[in-house]
Amino acid sequence: MPEPNALAAVWHPIRCASSGAMSGPDGFEWEQRSNGDIVVFHQGRRAATLRGRRAEEFLAEVEDGDDQELMARLTGNYKRGNERLARQHPRNCRRR
């Protein structure tokens, strides 16, 4: 039987989303350098640099998706206040 805090790992994000408390990622910007590299900034600070094939993939994906979501994923920035709970999520437990 799952532990209650493991259940919270599933239900807490739902509650956040339903109450509007969990907004999507924001504060990301990007620019392409003359050599083709993509530099991603978060809150004005450099967060990641993409080169070669990864830069090309980024440019393709940013055309038809949520660029904030994409940059959050690329930079590993998922900080929404539920990291501890998320570690207990069954999907993440399986990955460990």
């Binding site: 039987m1 799952p2 259940l7 790992a9 599933v10 239900w11 739902i14 069954p90 999907r91």
Partner: peptide, 22 residues
């Protein structure tokens, strides 16, 4: 419905259903 969420991950589904058994 004021909020709806759906998932096809069976493990996450089990965790959602577990609330019924609690």
């Amino acid at each position: 419905a004021t909020f709806v969420y759906h998932v096809d991950d069976p493990h996450e589904g089990d965790m959602l259903i577990e609330v019924r058994r609690k």
